[in-house]
Design a protein around this nucleic acid. Structure first.
Length: 963
RNA sequence: GCCGAGGUGGCGGAAUUGGUAGACGCGCACGACUCAAAAUCGUGUUCCUUCGGGGGUGGGGGUUCGAUUCCCCCCCUCGGCACCA
């Protein structure tokens, strides 16, 4: 037997498979289809490190498995090669981006080829190929025609280093550019924008249909879309120092001057004691450039604040969450439409311009930020919601009661009462007696429970409705409670004494604030603590108070009623913004629009697509906000397709995400020149059955789902979602536990690993490292373990026997079952563990040729080269092992005749007995009682015996052991 | 802060309709082969132990004959979002 020589064997089969077109996907084969897709790579100049192929190995294993199970498999690969990184790389290395991309792709393909992947390369696509981006442009035209692509002049994110506009999604959470880390500015500029918000609701709702997606990805999408329901309510304005403006009506709509706010809590309208506008709010700008320009007395102060706010970067404005700042617009008041009271109007940068209407009604009693602001500027805080806690019960007994917190300023501790029977710690509490006022009740209860007599009232809460079940009395209770805070007077000693009979019931204890929070579990008492001691506003829902005719209503009903009654509008807002779709760079798909003075923005006729990128001398960004394409007059100047007059081409290009938003469709029909995808083929192959990737999963999936739903609406595709099942890929860290990076010098190149250890070893190792979705550090030792497994399997040739051994047969059938189930579930690590177990058993007992062949088939998806060599050369099969039919297992062969049964005495394992399958309790008891090993553990007759057939027996000698 | 996922030997990890915790691999130790080394093969490897046993799946409590698995509370790690009204 020769030693396994991976260098020779792997190369040989890779060439053979290519020559045989083993992996070409057939159309109309009549087999069930399986579309298995990797998130296609961006071919960087760095090449691959060992982390990159992990996902590709998984899809390769899965594809081979499905093929052997009789599926027609579509498993393609392509290149996402437009975009800033490719362009920056090209500029840095002084080559044309196209040349750089071609070179990088060649390198990537070579690296991938070494790993023996089964891609159908006849379907290779490249987003920078004009025959591909023709259809990216085509989709844009359809969006334009449906009004979903529009021009906007809103200020956008501008990266001064990349010299281009960016979508919100291109920013890090601290507001810096995700590519280069520069601080991003706001710059007003003409932009193309896609109306993704039109699809926000559907993208959100249809997440529920994606049952085979990991929940964390779905959750991330929900966060990103950020839907919230609320209402828009108008507050009319009055001008206190210039009352002559009060009758003013907007000539456009005839409405009086007003500010429209967005709120999710219209039920708190009676508690809205001031308004806040974002510094960028149009009304703030109106302060100095409209007919109201003399209505604000402190115009200069306001202007200074707004300018200062605009100078602050996104980072400064968002990290500065301690201290809120703002300026009141003096001379203007807003009228609360519920109370008709005049309330002040502020400008403050804690309100964001791009969310809702850019203006809020502040309800300091029930919002943390408004509360902080109101405290600082001494604004009125009016509670309008009375909290409801607990779960309402059937037929409750109604009571009024109090909760009293007593603070001892001398020791800075708080009084708690620990009830012994319930093992529960509370503050002082108790029911009100007839005719008693709450404060008297509180003082009385404090006195009764603690002997403190000299307490001073500090503050109290609004009423709190509390529902609970009083277990001690066996009744459901609904109580209205008021919380109080009292302080011990200076001269009083901290009292401790209790009567003897009381000591049996409860202890009184004094704890510092830090401990109290973790001791008080009761919802009502914890809420009183939050309101009175931590002085936090109540932000939950409840019953309305101080709200005129709505008092007593539930929040949920009041939201509707109040919104309607003040002429508000129920609306939904999203955190997701429309997608800024143009980039002022060279290396992207030209946006197929022609600007004409007469006709405006005119779409390029479909028959003129693609609008190809012209050759240019300088593709560096101009820095003026114009794309480098703007300089090429011969390209820019065209005839208007609509009127025949002079027109100019749109010179902005599309963002990198464009091409990847639909590529999975093109793989199905990559060479179609008449359509993006053939209707019949689309029905045959879509949706993608398994989609594998990690990293930018959230953004890419948002964009791709948006385009897919649009294409569904215009009849190009037949499914509402593109990807049925999503498998998230965990990354591979370097051996030192850090990210693999040039910077740390810890990159491991797969070429080196393949050369030294072989592709099969690398494949098996990466699948064995841990659960597929886990991030795990590379281990060279672990890699060697995989190599040993490959070589042990190879050496099984010298363990062949004529007859089969029962243990080997059983293990083989177990392995067939386990490997089949685990590959389907992407649990590659445990399927390899089971195959290792089989090799161990087979090495010990020897195995027949037939069993060996079957085992090789199981291993073939993971180690395609070594298994093919044995299959064809050693066993002389004419056809590839990868075209063979997947083995099936025989249920009967899985079971053994005897089982090892655990013997427990009082729940502790004391040994085991071997019995035949199906042995009865009597059989086993007989066996144990006659076995001296167990005699010492069984001094007398067991009180109870628990018997689980074929698993264990538990003899309970005494129930009281260890208790 | 909110949402999601997770926490098991020296390491990666396995096991959940509640039923012998630590499969498989790595590492380590010892042995065989060898002049020697590598490779390979074999044995052992959760911790403590007075060798009888005892403890042990992030911590604390509960249910149970029996809990990694179910319930309650808390802590920590990772990921996403974050002044979103």
């Amino acid at each position: 037997m020769q030693k396994y020589d991976h260098k020779k064997i792997e190369k040989k089969w890779q060439e053979q498979w290519a020559a045989d077109e083993l992996y070409k996907t057939a159309e109309g084969s009549g087999k069930p289809k399986a579309y298995i897709l990797d998130m296609f790579p961006y071919p960087s100049g760095e090449g691959l490190h060992v982390g990159h192929p992990k996902g590709y190995i998984a899809t390769d294993v899965y594809s081979r498995f499905k093929k052997m199970n009789g599926y027609e498999v579509l498993h393609p690969m392509g290149w996402d090669a437009f975009g800033l990184p490719a362009e920056n790389f090209a500029i840095k290395h002084k080559v044309h981006p196209r040349v750089a991309v071609e070179r990088n792709i060649e390198n990537f393909k070579k690296q991938l080829a070494h790993l023996g992947f089964n891609y159908d390369w006849s379907r290779e696509i490249n987003t920078t190929d004009p025959s591909y981006y023709k259809w990216t442009q085509w989709v844009f035209l359809q969006l334009f025609k449906k009004g979903l692509a529009y021009e906007s002049h809103e200020p956008i994110n501008w990266c001064p280093s990349c010299q281009t506009g960016l979508a919100n999604e291109d920013l890090e959470s601290d507001g810096t550019c995700e590519r280069c880390g520069s601080t991003v500015e706001k710059k007003p500029m003409r932009q193309w924008v896609l109306k993704i918000t039109d699809y926000a609701d559907r993208m959100l709702q249809d997440l529920d249909t994606l049952t085979q997606w990991p929940s964390h990805i779905k959750e991330a999408q929900r966060n990103w879309i950020g839907r919230s329901e609320g209402a828009e309510i108008d507050f009319n304005l009055t001008f206190t120092t210039h009352p002559e403006h009060n009758g003013w009506r907007n000539p456009e709509d005839g409405r009086p001057a007003h500010i429209r706010v967005f709120t999710t809590r219209p039920d708190t309208l009676f508690g809205a004691t001031y308004l806040v506008l974002a510094p960028e709010h149009p009304w703030v700008r109106a302060v100095w450039d409209t007919e109201h320009n003399n209505t604000v007395e402190n115009k200069d102060e306001v202007a200074a604040y707004v300018v200062a706010a605009q100078k602050k970067t996104e980072i400064e404005r968002t990290t500065q969450d301690k201290e809120k700042t703002g300026v009141e617009l003096m001379g203007i008041k807003a009228v609360n439409p519920a109370t008709q009271e005049e309330i002040p109007v502020f400008v403050a940068d804690y309100v964001l311009a791009h969310y809702g209407t850019g203006a809020i009604m502040a309800v300091p009693a029930h919002d943390e930020r408004d509360y902080a602001f109101a405290q600082k500027y001494n604004l009125p805080i009016v509670p309008v919601i009375s909290p409801i806690t607990g779960v309402p019960q059937e037929n409750p007994e109604y009571r009024k009661s109090i909760v009293a917190i007593v603070h001892d300023p001398k020791t800075d501790t708080y009084l708690t009462v620990r009830w012994k029977d319930r093992n529960q710690t509370l503050f002082v509490g108790g029911g009100m007696e007839d005719g008693e006022d709450p404060q008297t009740t509180a003082a009385r209860e404090i006195c009764e429970e603690t002997r403190c007599t000299n307490v001073r009232y500090v503050s109290q809460t609004m009423p709190i409705r509390h529902n609970y079940f009083a277990h001690s009395k066996g009744v459901a209770r609904e109580i209205d409670a008021i919380g109080f805070l009292f302080e011990l007077e200076d001269d009083e000693e901290t009292p401790q004494t209790l009567e003897e009979n009381e000591k049996e019931q409860f202890d009184i204890e004094w704890h510092p604030a830090t401990e109290v929070a973790s001791l008080i579990k009761d919802e009502l008492h914890a809420l009183v603590w939050q309101l009175l001691v931590k002085k936090e506003p109540y932000t939950g829902t409840g019953l309305l108070i101080n709200s005129d005719v709505y008092t007593g209503m539930q929040s949920v009903d009041a939201k509707v009623a109040i919104t309607n009654d003040v002429g508000g509008m129920r609306t939904t807002t999203y955190k997701l913004k429309d997608w800024v779709f143009s980039r002022q760079r060279y290396w992207g798909e030209p946006i197929p629009i022609i600007h004409c003075e007469k006709c405006g923005a005119v779409p390029v006729p479909e028959e003129d697509l693609p609008v190809t990128l012209p050759e240019v001398d300088h593709y560096e960004p101009t820095g003026t906000g114009e794309s480098p394409l703007a300089d090429i007059e011969s390209w820019v100047n065209v005839t208007c397709p609509s009127c025949g007059g002079a027109g100019k081409r749109e010179t902005n290009t599309m963002p990198q995400w464009a091409g990847s938003s639909w590529y999975y469709l093109r793989f199905v029909d990559p060479h179609n020149t008449n359509a993006l995808i053939d209707v019949r083929k689309e029905k045959d192959w879509m949706p993608v059955d398994v989609y594998v990737g990690g990293d930018h999963a959230v953004r890419h999936l948002i964009y791709a789902r948006f385009w897919h739903k649009f294409l569904y609406d215009i009849g190009v595709v037949s499914t509402i979602e593109p990807f049925t099942r999503l498998e998230f890929l965990g990354f591979i860290l370097a051996e030192d536990g850090r990210k693999m990076s040039k910077r740390w010098g810890n990159i491991i190149n797969p070429d080196d690993v393949v050369l030294q250890h072989g592709a099969d070893t690398l494949r098996v190792y990466e699948m064995f490292m841990g659960p597929f979705e886990n991030t795990v550090a590379w281990s060279t030792n672990g890699l060697v373990g995989a190599q040993r497994f490959i070589e042990r399997t190879w050496r099984l040739q010298s363990h062949l026997t004529e007859t089969t051994h029962d243990a080997v047969t059983r293990e083989l059938h177990r392995t067939i079952r386990k490997v089949s189930e685990d590959i389907e579930a992407f649990k590659f690590n445990t399927s390899i563990a089971q195959m290792m177990t089989f090799v161990n058993v087979a090495t010990e007992h020897g195995l027949t040729e037939a069993d060996y062949r079957t085992f090789l088939q199981l291993l073939a998806p993971f180690a395609p080269h070594m298994t093919e060599e044995l299959w064809r050369v050693h066993f002389g099969n004419k056809d590839s092992i990868h075209a063979s039919a997947w083995p099936t297992y025989n249920e009967e062969l899985l079971t053994e005749e005897t089982v090892v049964l655990a013997v427990q005495i009082n729940g502790k394992v004391r040994g085991e007995v071997t019995v035949s399958v199906g042995a009865t309790q009597d059989d086993v008891v007989g066996l144990i009682t006659s076995d001296e090993r167990f005699a010492r553990w069984i001094p007398n007759t067991p009180q109870r015996i628990i018997f689980v057939p074929n698993k264990l027996i538990n003899m309970v000698i005494s129930d009281n052991v260890d208790k």
